[in-house]
Computed example of a mutant assay.
Amino acid sequence: MSSIKLTLELACTSEEAARFAAVELFLAEVGEDAEAEPPAELDAIFGARSRETILGLAGHPQPLGITFRYGQDRGVMTLAAAGGTPNLAALPVLLLWLYPEKLPIAYSVHVTERPELAVWT
């Protein structure tokens, strides 16, 4: 089975990185408890119906398949594919909602068996 390699670095503050962390945590909680609610701070980003908006954007119940790490020393958040199956339909839309002030955001994706066929988005 093919796997997809994705790595994206985004210069941001720790507060901006916390936005992605809040979404990722909420999606993990929904995986364990279908009635889980997102934290209140996501209402400012996604609106009063943030739960429905986030689940719709993320393609729930499909897993997001993306992990992140924030390096405060460099001020960079790194997103990476988890398990070789990132939800590539959800990622650009979530980034648009979470970081509209950072547009345009570009990243490349390729199947590990054919790295020469990278696609830039």
Rank of each mutant, 00 (worst) to 15 (best):
G56V: 03
G56I: 09
L27H: 02
T67C: 08
I54N: 07
G75R: 11
A44D: 14
F26K: 05
Q62L: 12
D43I: 01
R69D: 09
L55S: 06
L55E: 07
A48L: 05
T7N: 13
G65P: 03
T53I: 10
E15F: 14
C12F: 05
R74S: 15
S14W: 05
E37I: 06
A17T: 00
L64R: 06
L42I: 07
A34P: 07
G56N: 15
A80P: 03
M77G: 07
L27K: 03
P63Y: 10
M77K: 05
A11M: 10
H60N: 14
P38F: 01
P63R: 10
L55G: 00
H60S: 13
D73Y: 04
T13N: 08
A18G: 12
T78H: 01
A17K: 02
G59T: 11
R74W: 02
A58H: 06
P63F: 09
T7A: 10
S50T: 06
T7H: 09
S50C: 12
A17G: 04
M77Y: 04
A40M: 11
S2H: 10
L10K: 06
I54G: 03
I45H: 00
E37F: 11
L6N: 01
S50H: 11
L8G: 01
F20V: 07
R74Q: 14
L57S: 12
H60Y: 15
S2W: 13
M77E: 04
S2D: 14
Q72I: 02
A22C: 07
A11V: 10
E37C: 11
Q72Y: 00
E41H: 12
I54F: 04
S2N: 15
F46A: 07
M77T: 06
S3M: 12
G59V: 10
R51T: 01
F68N: 05
D43F: 01
H60A: 13
A44P: 00
I54A: 04
R51K: 15
P38C: 13
P63G: 06
